[in-house]
Amino acid sequence: MAHLVELKCLCGGVRGKVEVISGSFFHVHCLCIDCQHFAVYLNNEANILDVHGGTELFQTYPAHLKITEGKDKIGCVQLSPKGLYRWHTKCCNMPIANTMRSPNVPFVGLSVKLMSFSSNQEKLNTLGPVTVKAFGKYAKGDKPADTHAKFPISGLPKILAFMLRGMLRKMNRPHPFFNDKIPIAEIDLISL
């Protein structure tokens, strides 16, 4: 069963839609230092990070995500030369998603903050509970319960199967952040 969820940044300048299809996503709570540095770069920690310094991500296939308004208001940074592309709004400094550097990889980690839900219960009904809590060693204050210090090795087979299914089904296309192989925004390499 699929649900179509509206996407909107804080100011409404960037909008889109994502299909939530059972078996085609991971609901993740990430406490990694790179997500925290990205929030600092955007100068918007209060609207991005939770009390533990974490971010909630909806990891799915690029083919399920569509930007409908504000592509001209999208920017992108890398925190290291081989790092993820971190897409964000230039209008209100909100993270949009993380992708690999190649549009051939069928993966996009969408910020749940952009997803429009009428209540926490609707969010839970649509996304289900967080299934992976990772990088707890970077938590601010106490590490949240059930959080792995790093990424759990037990999750790697699921991710590899997810990627393989996506490659076989060509779920990297259309890609919301690339025109063919060209990124829709200039990639800025930053260091914090």
Rank of each mutant, 00 (worst) to 15 (best):
V5K: 08
V5A: 10
E6H: 14
K8P: 12
K8M: 10
C9T: 02
C11G: 05
G13Q: 09
V14W: 07
R15I: 05
R15D: 11
K17C: 11
V18W: 02
I21E: 06
S22H: 08
S24P: 04
F26S: 01
C32L: 05
Y41D: 10
L42M: 09
N43I: 13
E45R: 11
I48H: 07
D50Q: 03
V51T: 13
G53A: 08
G54R: 05
G54E: 01
E56N: 13
E56S: 09
Q59T: 14
T60S: 05
T60Y: 03
A63E: 13
A63W: 13
L65N: 03
K66L: 05
T68M: 08
G70N: 00
D72M: 10
D72W: 11
C76D: 06
L79A: 02
P81I: 07
K82R: 14
G83C: 02
R86Y: 10
T89E: 03
T89N: 05
K90F: 09
N98G: 07
R101C: 12
F107L: 11
V108E: 06
G109H: 10
K113R: 14
M115P: 02
S118D: 15
S119M: 00
N120L: 15
N120D: 15
Q121H: 04
Q121V: 13
Q121Y: 10
K123S: 11
L124N: 12
L124A: 12
N125M: 13
N125R: 14
T126C: 08
V130E: 09
V130W: 06
T131G: 15
